[in-house]
Design a protein around this nucleic acid. Structure first.
Length: 684
DNA sequence: CTTAGGG
DNA sequence: CCCTAAG
């Protein structure tokens, strides 16, 4: 069996840009290099495990290296796009000419571009466009976009070929984008498309610091939502004590906001935001409702676009905070909505953070063997005597990377950003999954034959996936966890291998850790992803902030959080106007609210907000007011009619009591001179 | 910007 | 949650 893998040299090897450290990737592996051809021959009897090992080895060996070389450069993508159209004959020919290196960036002949990075924006933008990538080379960005589109199309096509129809089982797919994305494809394509789409969609890498590292307790819980809460058995504050978040002035919210700690990998990457920023971002993240850094700072003019309502008139320092908060809200409202994920995870936007990469669930990289009419993923070479099967894996694609970067950023920065995103995903090591007819082959000891993988399969029904090796994080559920995979798998065959799971787990884990560390911070604050700052004491804000932009794989959408909402909803105008994601109040939040209202009354929502939810950026005083309204209503209806997370009756009773009390107080005040009698009557 | 209410 | 009228 021969695995032929070629690294894309054409990619302007990240050489151009600052290459972020790619752990596990030998430097030598980076940098531009000629197309390489690797072949490994394995007897057909080799077990699936061997196959995996082989692939994995290749990947780590050079595949990753290749990734390191990846560049967002349009040329590479273009080439890729072209690849789609490469005819089989050409491919064959190509095989023979393996050595030939694609040096011409505009050249699209080389079909062997290995690692592909799909920019999420491409998905969005490509939807209604022709997959053909025209190299609008001059404009790097546009070029990149178009190329990406092409690439997408290409990959989809490949995927289609790769995965059998049955592999698509789930319905999660929104499909809206697929059809358009896909180039005219053979039947079955659509069927498969969904998976691919999901896969792609499922991955967002957020540059922000991983919650895990960042001790920021304020990671937004909503994203992982209640689930996290419950799953982690977070301690709930039963009494008012400890409920109120400590007012921390270091609140990230602050205008400076630049102190977001970023935890990991990333180096400081701060580019100045430019007016163009929003535009770029839109392009990049159009798919998400909220991409925006939840925290944009008022000082951040770059977001001007976003702030349609320049309402940030900073007043007295005193109010700075409040204002900021408001600003934040506004921004969120206008801008953030587009990228729920990003903001939710929100972390490292830090200082003028301009670059963001969001990765969602799938850490896994889907590896696809290209094949099919246009390109030949696996080249079966029977030439040789025996039963060796030869297959060529043309590319490993990162499911989806959302990259956000200001236009003012340099190309090098872009490269670096992408690299970081990829690194974050792959840094932990890779695992390879084998898909046969869309189903994951889990038994590593089976021989290919036993697994039913025949020659034909090599060509048509075999797929590979790259999965992040999450062993690093003990808490993270290992991808190996079949059961877990199973769960998700059902829905997304492709994804199954994928990381989405693991990543989501990541998120949960992370949160739990944080909570564990900072029980007090657990309250609603905890749910504030926006806040990057670490909650009292737990975090080490700045240390991280230095490395702004750690890439953080964003956990898969949390069902509870509902945050990740249909990123796919293409319908919505990506621009703004998205409704904020719904974030049910947790019991803890309710309690805090009740407590505050008991103390302050029902007409001082701003104060309530400040007092009890100052750290929960996503809760505006209006939200609190509304919540109170619903609480009062909830308290007045029968428990059977209540929905959502049940609120302890005790709290509801307090709600009614407080409501009654304050209503009365208000009534008293209303009539300038509340007659004692009236009062007495009421009390009665 | 806050409140208060309706949607 | 959103939107808006009022203050």
């Amino acid at each position: 069996m021969v695995f032929q893998k070629r690294s894309s040299s054409e990619l302007e090897a990240s050489g151009g840009g600052q290459v972020a450290e790619m752990p596990r990737v030998p430097k030598s592996a980076r940098g531009k290099r000629s197309v390489r051809k690797k072949e490994a021959q394995n007897p057909p009897q080799m077990s699936a495990f061997d196959l995996l090992a082989t692939v994995a080895g290749k990947l780590l060996d050079e595949g990753v290296g290749s990734l390191g070389n990846m560049s967002a450069g349009a040329p590479a993508l273009t080439a890729c796009a072209k690849d789609v159209r490469v005819k089989k004959e050409q491919c064959d020919e190509e095989m023979k000419q393996f050595k030939h290196e694609v040096t011409d960036q505009d050249s699209c002949n080389e079909s062997a571009i290995l690692p592909h990075i799909v920019f999420q924006r491409a998905v969005n933008n490509a939807r209604n466009e022709d997959p053909k990538a025209k190299s609008e080379a001059q404009d790097k960005e546009s070029s990149m976009i178009s190329c990406t589109k092409a690439e997408l199309g290409c990959n989809f096509g490949v995927i289609a070929d790769r995965w059998s129809p049955e592999s698509v089982e789930s319905g999660a797919f929104t499909g809206d984008a697929v059809a358009s994305l896909m180039p005219p494809a053979p039947a079955g394509f659509h069927k498969n498309a969904p998976e691919m789409y999901n896969l792609l969609d499922s991955m967002d890498v957020d540059v922000k610091p991983p919650p895990l590292v960042s001790s920021d307790s304020t990671g937004e819980m909503p994203l992982y939502g209640d689930k996290v809460h419950r799953s982690t058995s977070l301690p709930r504050v039963s009494k008012g004590v400890g409920f109120f978040p400590v007012d921390r002035d270091d609140d990230d919210d602050k205008s400076s906001g630049c102190t977001h700690p970023s935890t990991t990998t990333n180096k400081d990457f701060r580019s100045n935001c430019t007016a163009e920023y929003s535009r770029v971002r839109k392009l990049l993240t159009s798919k998400y409702r909220k991409v925006a850094p939840a925290r944009v700072y008022k000082s951040d003019l770059s977001y001007s676009d976003v702030d349609r309502k320049p309402s940030f008139r900073n007043k007295k320092m005193h109010y700075t905070r409040q204002r900021t908060q408001r600003s934040t809200f506004k921004r969120r409202k206008l801008f953030d909505r587009h990228s729920v994920l990003a903001s939710e995870f929100g972390t490292a936007h830090g200082k003028g953070n301009t670059k963001k990469v969001t990765g969602r669930d799938s850490h896994a990289v889907s590896l696809e063997a290209n094949k099919g009419t246009s390109s030949t993923p696996f080249q079966k070479s029977r030439g040789s005597n025996d039963c060796h099967v030869k297959l060529k894996i043309k590319s490993f694609k990162v499911p989806e990377l959302l990259v956000e970067i200001p236009e003012s950023a340099t190309v090098g920065s872009l490269k670096k950003t992408v690299l970081e995103a990829v690194t974050a995903i792959l840094g932990g090591g890779l695992r390879v999954g084998v898909l046969h007819h869309g189903k994951k082959v889990r038994d590593d000891n089976k021989t290919l034959i036993q697994a039913g993988i025949g020659q034909e399969d090599m060509l048509d029904n075999l797929g590979f996936s790259l999965e992040p090796n999450c062993t690093q994080n003990p808490q993270v559920q290992a991808p190996e966890d079949i059961s877990f995979l199973e769960t998700i798998d059902t829905a997304e065959p492709l994804a199954r291998i994928a990381p989405a799971d693991s990543s989501s787990k990541h998120g949960e884990v992370d949160l739990s850790q944080e909570f564990a560390l900072t029980p007090l911070a657990m309250n609603y604050q905890g749910s504030d992803h926006d806040s990057v700052h670490s909650p009292g004491g737990v975090s080490s804000p700045d240390k991280v902030s230095t490395n702004s932009r750690a890439l953080v794989p964003v956990p898969a959408a949390d069902p509870n959080a509902g945050a990740i909402v249909p990123a796919n909803k293409s319908k919505r105008s990506p621009e703004q106007g998205q409704r904020r994601i719904r974030r049910p109040f947790s019991v803890a939040e309710v309690e805090a609210l009740v407590l505050a209202v008991e103390k302050l009354g029902t007409g001082r929502w701003r104060d309530v907000k400040l007092r009890a939810f100052d750290n929960a950026k996503h809760r505006t005083y209006v939200d609190l007011k509304d919540k109170w309204k619903t609480l009062v209503h909830t308290a007045s209806i029968s428990p059977q009619q209540r929905r959502g997370e049940p609120v302890p009756q005790e709290l509801l009773d307090r709600v009614l009591a407080a409501q009654a009390y304050w209503s009365q107080q208000q009534a008293k005040l209303q009539p300038k001179t509340p007659p004692l009698l009236a009062e007495a009557r009421l009390l009665t």
